[in-house]
Design a binder for these strands. Structure first.
Length: 424
DNA sequence: CATGCATGAGAAACCACAGAGCGGG
DNA sequence: GACCCGCTCTGTGGTTTCTCATGCA
């Protein structure tokens, strides 16, 4: 596999991980940390503890930790060759092997029989991937429509990093990370959502591209933040050097990485402490605008929104491309979501009902049912050929053929004892 | 960088015929 | 209404052919 391909996969994994970042299915507010197959639910740390300590039966539920650290860089060349599990279904076709001089050392032998163990593992991974249906994530909705600053302050501390993501996050990262889902994939996804939610995509109230999946050239400027970097080289302040820069956010922070080796929720604390330490390190960098963090091989740029806006307020121009901060119009939202409450295990705390054009939340029974049907359809979708009439299959299998084509039985000469035993 | 060739993967076509479905008697 | 008959259409699997994507020179 070429390095180029590996890079593609790596960046794609990061982008996909970001896309699949999801909120806790219970409280819908915090970031999901655990996936429980028995409950088919992704839960945050608090809800997981609450739910799975309720009774001995629940305590026995096997949970998988949803990895929250960034897409870890490969430690060796060998790991380069191992595509991420999610990519198995999207791998490009194998190309014709070229007659290149074999590298020194023993030739690599291809297994003659399928690796059942690996196959089973793959199957297990795929089963888990089936649960990765698009779920409403408040953080994602934040990307679709940045809330007012007051709203942002009302959110919990844990949700704040997501709030700081720039609006263009919904558009830029896919390209920035090199992840380009095909139009066909996007169309299929859109059709799925449309058919299940019963809305036309050309309806103004439904903006699939608000998810950031579509390339929307005409919307490029809408809701974008113009970012300019102050380059301070050697204490000498220079002019603005870049306009409308596309800041690469750490997309890989929410990859759903199944950590089979980590079975105890107690181990989460270490990881969360590590995350907190990383964030603290970033905060100590301070400064205005973007923050670059190099952790190992990972380079992360973060945008300090407040600092950018404060810096721009000192100037005579606006950080927004059109001069005004993009306002969210609640009328653009689905009617179901206007005035909704954020309920759940969190105690029914009311939160601002502004969560993007594609907000899918609990609290609306009809919507919940639709989303449930959507999940069920995704899970039970069959890609293999479905036999409607078994008897026709049996007949076709018994029918004589020539070069794969059916032939008349009269034209099939019955010669010899073998032919004499032919069923016709 | 653009072009043409080689190659593989996947889709489509092809075939005969049993059986489903329908309308008329 | 139930039954029979005739007609049309559907769906089935293995192989070949065609189309498309991709790598390489």
């Amino acid at each position: 596999m070429s390095h180029h391909h590996c890079d593609k996969q790596r960046s794609s994994a990061g982008a996909l991980g970001a896309k699949t970042a999801r909120a806790c299915d219970s409280c819908l507010r915090r970031r999901a940390r655990w996936y429980c197959a028995a409950d088919d639910a992704c839960l945050c740390q608090a809800c997981d503890s609450s739910v799975h300590s309720a009774n001995p039966l629940a305590r026995r539920h096997h949970r998988l930790r949803l990895k929250t650290t960034s897409f870890s860089p490969p430690s060796s060349a060998s790991s380069d060759d191992a595509p991420p599990p999610w990519l198995h279904g999207f791998r490009r076709k194998a190309r014709t092997p070229r007659g290149k001089p074999a590298p020194a050392g023993p030739p690599k032998l291809e297994p003659l029989v399928p690796d059942l163990e690996a196959d089973e593992k793959l199957h297990t991974e795929e089963e888990h991937l089936l649960y990765r249906v698009p779920i409403f994530d408040p953080a994602l909705a934040e990307f679709c429509s940045p809330p007012a600053l007051d709203d942002a302050n009302a959110l919990t501390d844990e949700a704040k990093p997501a709030v700081q993501q720039p609006p263009e996050h919904a558009h830029v990262p896919a390209a920035a990370a090199g992840f380009h889902p095909s139009d066909l994939d996007l169309a299929e996804f859109a059709a799925d959502v449309e058919s299940l939610l019963g809305r036309g995509l050309d309806d103004d109230t439904f903006c699939i591209d608000a998810l950031g999946l579509m390339d929307s050239a005409e919307d490029d400027n809408k809701g974008r933040v113009k970012v300019e970097l102050d380059v301070d080289a050697g204490g000498e302040r220079t002019d603005f050097v870049a306009c409308d820069i596309d800041v690469e956010i750490d997309l890989s922070r929410e990859t759903l990485d199944l950590d089979f080796g980590c079975g105890s929720p107690a181990a989460v604390e270490d990881l969360e402490e590590q995350e907190a330490a990383e964030e603290a390190a970033m905060a100590s960098d301070g400064g205005c605008g973007t923050e670059a963090v190099a952790a190992g091989r990972r380079m992360t740029l973060r945008l300090d929104y407040e600092a950018v806006i404060a810096a721009w307020s000192c100037k005579d121009c606006s950080p927004w491309t059109d001069g005004e901060r993009p306002q969210f119009n609640p009328d653009d939202c689905w009617p179901d979501f206007t005035g909704m409450m954020w309920g759940g295990a969190g105690g029914g705390r009311e939160v601002a009902p502004v969560y993007g054009e594609l907000g899918m939340v609990a609290g609306d029974g009809g919507r919940e049912a639709k989303v449930t049907r959507y999940r069920e359809k995704r899970r039970t979708r069959l890609f293999s050929k479905k036999i409607r009439y078994e008897v026709r299959k049996l007949n076709a299998e018994k029918r004589p053929r020539m070069k794969g084509r059916f032939v008349k039985r009269a034209a099939f000469p019955a010669v010899g004892p073998a032919a004499a035993s032919f069923p016709f």
